[in-house]
Nucleic acid binder design. Structure first.
Length: 267
DNA sequence: AATATTGTTCAGCA
DNA sequence: GTGCTGAACAATAT
């Protein structure tokens, strides 16, 4: 689930717990998530240094260091999270990497499935370029004009387009459904069939849905009653807006929830 | 006990 | 070359 709002909450969590503390050692399951560096290499790189600050682009979290100019990169795949803890008996299950601080605390990078990424990079901008990532949809610079530029000459279905990180970065399966539900757009609508009003509504709902999710700690259980995401997987849930039956289909291979009454097929 | 789930990458096709 | 779609990947919960 770690999409933009989840990663933003993890970023703030790290900011409020693990900055400016000397790193004593690092343990890492090298086979699973470490990329381009060994467990020992990572330990050697970070030991004696400390986390200085954080940045986020899409679903990637970047951590700057106080002594070294390189950055630590974390991607949380589908099931990743961070847990800051002190006592050894509190060590979380499925901890793949542990940053151990001299004050006795640990920051755990936790993940049940192993689709994640932990690496060291020289600079954030170069990494974003190299991965061909589109603009971060939560940043100030992501204006309606920018959004329209991203969609220019696109012909695919709107849902996979919103989820394509090389077009725009941050939206995943769950929030794509939420954005299109709030905007009243059928998920398989072709991008080139959207009119100006529909494009603008989608743009506004990107901003609105992500901000609302962040304001609620990316916890679906606390989202407003008008939201669709808390109802995912609930077999007999009805549409929060019209009380009609919610549909569950596959779009481009991904599980998709929508309301056939509120989100009409075009044409 | 099959099946659904999540994000990214990549094969295959237009 | 380029864009689009869907399969594959790991491991758990149901």
């Amino acid at each position: 689930v770690p999409e933009l709002p989840d990663v933003e909450i993890l970023r703030r969590y790290l900011d409020s717990t693990a900055l400016h503390q000397e790193i004593e050692s690092v343990q890492a399951d090298a086979d699973s998530v470490l990329k381009g560096i060994s467990s020992q290499g990572l330990g050697k790189k970070l030991s004696g240094d400390s986390f200085q600050g954080t940045r986020r682009h899409g679903k990637f979290l970047f951590i700057s260091l106080e002594k070294d100019s390189d950055w630590l990169v974390l991607h949380f795949g589908m099931t990743g999270s961070l847990i800051y803890y002190k006592l050894a008996e509190k060590e979380p299950e499925y901890q793949l990497v542990s940053f151990n601080f001299t004050n006795g605390y640990h920051l755990a990078y936790v993940m049940t499935r192993k689709f994640g990424e932990v690496r060291i990079i020289p600079d954030v901008f170069g990494f974003i370029e190299e991965r061909k990532m589109g603009p971060d949809v939560y940043s100030q610079g992501f204006t309606f004009e920018e959004f329209k530029k991203c969609l220019a000459k696109r012909h695919g279905m709107v849902k996979p387009t919103l989820m394509n990180q090389s077009i725009m970065a941050g939206i995943g399966n769950v929030y794509a459904d939420e954005i299109l539900f709030q905007a009243g757009i059928y998920p398989e609508t072709k991008v080139n069939q959207l009119n100006q009003a529909e494009l603008h509504e989608i743009y506004q709902q990107i901003k609105n849905v992500l901000q609302t999710a962040i304001d609620h700690q990316a916890d679906p259980n606390s989202y407003p009653d008008s939201f669709l995401s808390p109802l995912r997987g609930d077999q007999d849930a009805n549409c929060p807006r019209c009380d009609g039956k919610l549909e569950h289909i596959k779009v481009s291979g991904r599980s998709t929830y929508y309301c056939s009454n509120c989100q009409k097929k075009p044409g």
